[in-house]
Design a protein around this nucleic acid. Sequence first.
DNA 1: CTGAAAGCGCTTACAG
DNA 2: CTGAAAGCGCTTACAG
Lengths: 328, 328
Amino acid sequence: MVTIKDIAQEAGVSTMMVSRVINKRYNQVSAENIERIEKIIKKYNYIPNSAAQSLSSKTSKIIAIFIQGDANSLEHPYNAVMLGYLIQNIQARGYDTMVHFISNYSDVCNKLQSWKASGAVFFGMFEKDFLQFQTNEKIPFVFTDCYSSSIPIANIGIDNYKGGSLAAQHLLDYGHDNFAIVGEYFNESLLNQQRLKGFCDTLSKAGINIEQNHIINFDSSTATKLIEIQQAHLAVFAFSDILSLKVIKQLNEHGYRVPDDFSIIGFDDLFICHLTSPELTTVSQNLSKKAEAAVDLLFQYLNYPDMPLQNIVLDVELVSRDTVKNLL
Amino acid sequence: MVTIKDIAQEAGVSTMMVSRVINKRYNQVSAENIERIEKIIKKYNYIPNSAAQSLSSKTSKIIAIFIQGDANSLEHPYNAVMLGYLIQNIQARGYDTMVHFISNYSDVCNKLQSWKASGAVFFGMFEKDFLQFQTNEKIPFVFTDCYSSSIPIANIGIDNYKGGSLAAQHLLDYGHDNFAIVGEYFNESLLNQQRLKGFCDTLSKAGINIEQNHIINFDSSTATKLIEIQQAHLAVFAFSDILSLKVIKQLNEHGYRVPDDFSIIGFDDLFICHLTSPELTTVSQNLSKKAEAAVDLLFQYLNYPDMPLQNIVLDVELVSRDTVKNLL
DNA sequence: CTGAAAGCGCTTACAG
DNA sequence: CTGAAAGCGCTTACAG
């Protein structure tokens, strides 16, 4: 295994010179030496030992990604796609990515400490305890979709209120006046509350109020409930695309059709929704941009540790496809 | 930051004793010392520096996962789920996972060398060049779904021939006598050829031969082709679940219904297929087991480097759901 | 069962 | 622009 010492020897310089070239501190090395050293590096296909670099510099070019839960998390396309884009963006910056599933606080600290990671990205649901990291560790953290009111954190999120509002407006535009909402974890998630509020506020402005029993926590009897409250054509706002598919499936099993009997509008705009027929009308968020923004923000903290914590809110847009019936 | 030296000092022993305890070489330490040292480790919540460990031991508890392609690879649920299970199994063994998207040979060598990874898992499509690793590097490698005839590699695959055969038999059992096959990359992938052969051989035994124009390379005109060759009810064997969904969608757009007008049978049995209606009949492979087998095999090579290269073939089974019409 | 010595391959901090 | 010295935090290999 060729080391910095071998390169230095062959170049007739000190190891420090080689180190400077490796780290692209070109202003500290003569042009002549840069060229000579790089040539030898290439000749031997020399790869620096990351562990040695880490040990002496007390940091490493590793970004840790923490996913709440276990492997099943990646069955949800949202998480899988998000993970993919995060890794890609991290890789594009010359850093390596470690991925960990976690279930508790100490797991995170261990992984971060032992590898001296440069930074971390969190995604999935995190309880308040998790958010405290920010204070206990000095390495930069970025959360995604963590909408916490109490604790200031660096976060990349989307405009959930607007998403709910766009969904409502679209349905109103298509002449709907009979609504239901299907979600999960209403109480535990600020995200859902924002979508709900955006939806209800917009309907409210049009003089429509949603009754409490039209707000449904998804389970196996959701279709039954929807059918019960269906006086006329009912428009359902589901809080994710996957949830939309599940609802459509349940309705189909009861012999009802979308969009003929029920309209439905989802949230996320996952690739998978293009494979269904009818194609899902949905509130679209751009995961590619979201991941990029998360990594951008992380590297800003990496370069400027004293930068104040930011909560970045990305835009959403409505994508009209085939699951909302035009009643006009 | 507390180090092995601090622990040793407080325990009144050498750093070697602490190192032995950390590495669980308990037979080299007195019971008394084990207890004392472990208590102090816990007290300070001491976490070993992985870089230091790696530098002196010339290895690290890192497994690298290489995915051919870029972030888009994870849009395919198969890849995403597989990745999740792999990470989970690696983590369960106390190792950390680095994930890399790769497009060429040298990327792999760099990553493996610089971190002194203990082993690597490959998934996605790999050309012959990639398979050569096995000889150029001494760290253990496991491929998944790499069906190479020429070069011996360690691989976890499934019984694709049987999968094709099961699909054919199921359709025969349901009274079908009119068949088509939809796949991708027929020529580049031994996997597809095995599925094709299993399917055709089984039909052949029943006295049925598939005409060449019934073997279709998927594109946007696939439904048109299927409709053209549909004399009676046509049974389509698609080489993946995702492909099945795409075919169903195309057929729906032409006004045809599954399973009324066409029957379809997929391959993989992804979670996502339970969300569609009708639910997909498919050849099921167990990704959880596949990932576990891959990690098991990798660790066997890690522990017994001289073990001969194995090609493990996992079983598949047919899962009958709602996309195949019973013609009897 | 125990420990002193040397070294892994780099970077930091300093001096010139 | 250049380099000698020291050290990062562990483990290996050896001796007892």
